[in-house]
């Protein structure tokens, strides 16, 4: 199963942090996602990008998981020299993580 079939996501910056929300389409996929997408799993995934701690805030009411990836943008969007200096595409990257973990 591919995650983008069961959820979507949006991400952006706040200072040096990337803020990512993942939204499940159904209660069932929300349950699966919340088991799989722990803060630690997300931290491991984004580690190659050079990051600090990851916080996870589940919002079951909205079938959503919120992740805050700390110190992720080389000091912030205005200081970063990356093409994606605001972490706008980290949402897309995270969708791919779950896809790989769920298997084909």
């Amino acid at each position: 199963m591919r995650i983008q079939e069961v959820a979507y996501a949006r991400s952006s910056d706040k200072g040096d942090h990337v803020d990512i929300s993942v939204f499940a389409y159904t209660e069932e996929s929300y349950q699966k996602l919340s088991q799989m997408l722990t803060a630690e799993r997300v931290r491991q995934f984004f580690e190659p990008m050079g990051i600090g701690a990851v916080e996870c805030y589940p919002v079951p009411n909205l079938l959503a998981l919120k992740f805050v990836v700390k110190n992720a943008l080389d000091g912030g969007g205005a200081r970063s020299i990356r093409a994606d200096n605001q972490g706008k595409t980290w949402s897309g990257a995270l969708l791919r993580l779950a896809q790989e973990q769920w298997g084909g």
Binding site: Y8, R10, S12, D13, K14, H17, D19, S21, F23, E55, Y57, V59, L62, A64, K66, V68
Partner: peptide, 16 residues
Amino acid sequence: ADTVREQLLYEIHDPT
């Protein structure tokens, strides 16, 4: 509801 929840949580860090 999908477009609204997406913006509702946008960049707010702790939803509580």
